[in-house]
Design a protein around this nucleic acid. Sequence first.
DNA 1: TTGTAGGCGTTATCAT
DNA 2: ATGATAACGCCTACAA
Lengths: 336, 336
Amino acid sequence: MTRARITLRDVAAAAGVSVATCSYVLSGRADRTTPLPEATRRRVEEAARQLGYKGNTAARSLRRQRSELIALVYAPPVGPWLDRLTLQCEDIAAGHGYSVIGVPIRRLDRAAQSLRVITRGHVDGAIFAPDLADFLDLTAARRSTRALLAFSEHLEAPGIDIVRNNVREAVAEATAYLLASGRRRIAFLSHAQTVNPARSDRYQGYLDALGAAGVAIDPRLVRAGAAAREDAVLVVRDLLDLPDPPDALVSESDRGAFAALQAAADRGVKVPDDLAVIGTGNTREASYSAPPLTSVGMYQLDFTAIVEALFARIDDPTLPARQLSLPWILNRRQSA
Amino acid sequence: MTRARITLRDVAAAAGVSVATCSYVLSGRADRTTPLPEATRRRVEEAARQLGYKGNTAARSLRRQRSELIALVYAPPVGPWLDRLTLQCEDIAAGHGYSVIGVPIRRLDRAAQSLRVITRGHVDGAIFAPDLADFLDLTAARRSTRALLAFSEHLEAPGIDIVRNNVREAVAEATAYLLASGRRRIAFLSHAQTVNPARSDRYQGYLDALGAAGVAIDPRLVRAGAAAREDAVLVVRDLLDLPDPPDALVSESDRGAFAALQAAADRGVKVPDDLAVIGTGNTREASYSAPPLTSVGMYQLDFTAIVEALFARIDDPTLPARQLSLPWILNRRQSA
DNA sequence: TTGTAGGCGTTATCAT
DNA sequence: ATGATAACGCCTACAA
């Protein structure tokens, strides 16, 4: 119980060889010209197993200048796609001898604290999930790690690989889809306090589609302040009580869309017949709502190339920054 | 860009003092008998700032035999309570100079891989969220870290602090609540393949309450196989189609309870009038369903004592294992 | 085929 | 009041 930690030296003593040999056997990817004889290798492995040798990450990191750890930075709550990303990260990381840790950012105003794991040099690389990198100061992180990769629509930073989701185009496509099905009074629901065209790709996409179709924008149909679900319900009720209510609604979030479904039920408005609803994010709950929510977002993704890009940069941090693409799509369900 | 990492030696050179002094100024909590003169301290701090000195965690860990990192191990998807736990962990950890990392266990069969962060000695301590510790082999983890704390109903392991939630008692209370409101045909819905009384505290709680009230168990009302939501809907529809259908339902998960709400809607059965529904877990969605779901689970928690217990054990791993308690309660909403 | 030795960057224990 | 210096445990070029 109180027995000291087993070190390489202990193993070496037990196996009757030098620590160097043990190191070669147990963790050596050293390109030795000649491999060790089977007998020695076995003796060392046996001794290590018997003693329960665990190695010491700190010592190894110090020596190798690598922690063999990558971080996945994200903002809860998360949906299925982050699950997939994590799983794939772990697989690919394992292939490189790396482990993956999660860094949940609960509150943006404490991000710096959460990111200490990165800024203090605990990890060799980090992946930033969507809707995060644009609001974070990554300079400290960039200096203290070998590789950074961010899902972001706008960020451009030297030495950081970026993944674009083409959110604006996807929302435009969704809006166009509503227009194509004959809807003309399409509302837009934002979770921000005020709708700032300059800051919202989603709103821009909405505008793009209406503009392209030559449909005038009715400012009364553009509503903000739908951050909390309760507020969103009130906002949508208000929309439905207009003398000329919307016949469709695009929400900047799935949460707002769920609120719209609820408000519609409250008012006896049928979805999708009287009101088509499209959410954004394609969260897990979208499949479960009544009716299931049509939502713009990622789906069925293969993140392999992205994770490999991170490892490529870990191997060679001087690589030119790359832009990768992972377009959002319209996931059609029953609400529109 | 390619400039080498700044080390203490660089700072020392710049400040014109020794590395020892720098170490003391920059990170020394050593209880020196006498504090350093203000002038020296300032000179060092200035030099460090100018050079952008970051420190090296690996070296520090190696020397101090501490990583100043704790892990929070959990199984997604997560609800609000894990958010709270994380937030409180981060606060308390920060007070101890520690950072928190998340270790999501996506699949139990790969847990060992995910747990390498712990078994390889990257962290000084780890907290295991509920429904995890009982299915994991913690021996490797226990040996490679200073402190372990697990939310678990049954686990008893030397040197691991345990938090009990009293799940069985809470489900019994919920069932008793249904009985008290006059329900007699109370169904039980399990997400397991078969209902194994020996392994399910929730089912045990259900049995306890029925037994105490002298209500006979109708085996037809006990259903398993409700793991996926779609399956659960079918199971509940089947229940509702019985000649003598249930007037209440206790689900082993909130997911199953949502399915019950949906199945009830499909069949025109009113909740809670014709069918009272109680879920388990008190997940975030419980507040959002129609009607909002009454659910047994944790709520409004203060994890301070728990996290502090972990740090106490980090400070002194020889502490006797403690049992802490954090009872589940019945969170009443509208479905029962 | 195996061992020796130097060093990764810090911190702690002495000296000075 | 400050500075040498020896670990911490591991990896690897080089020597034997």
